[in-house]
Amino acid sequence: MEKSSLNKYVKFGLVVFMSVGLILFTQEIKLLKNPESTPVSSMTIWGLLVLWLFSMVGIVISDLAKKVPIGFIQNFPVLGWVSITSLVSCMLSDTFIKAISAVDFLSITTPILTFAGISVVDRLADLRKTSWKVAIVAVFVFIGTYVGSALLSQIGLMVTGH
């Protein structure tokens, strides 16, 4: 039991490590293409290590939360726990913010969408099962949630005079 859960964390640790490695690679490539983008400094390396650390702490918290007998806490996604871990740590110390800010934001996104693309390829065949009607509805559903939220925020911002 002990050993298998340790193995699980080693595996998660390696996957997250691969992820931050890909971010570093992307940031280097971005620099090759545009020398004026965010430079890779020793702060960047610290930033990536901090991102790795917060991710791992979030994973552990998420596992512990599954033992709390409150549905709402049990079901809170690991993605949320990681953000909260990072938010609280960054409130406590500016050093974390400085390190993380040395990691280029868009360089984080390209590797994620690369994996997202690979992960969905077997679903492409499922598209045949969906009707064109649902596809049209989907467009309006997407527009509906986005415009709905944007309108309410816009009104809110206008009311407060921002």
Binding site: V15, L51, V82, S86, L87, C90, F105, I112, F115
Partner: peptide, 26 residues
């Protein structure tokens, strides 16, 4: 490989979620 990408996509996204903390905090 495809199932690896699917199974671990969430974990690959975690550094992004960690980055958000640093963006929200200030």
């Amino acid at each position: 490989n495809v199932s690896f990408a699917g199974k671990y996509l969430i974990f690959i996204m975690l550094p992004l979620m960690a980055r958000y903390g640093a963006d929200v905090a200030p």
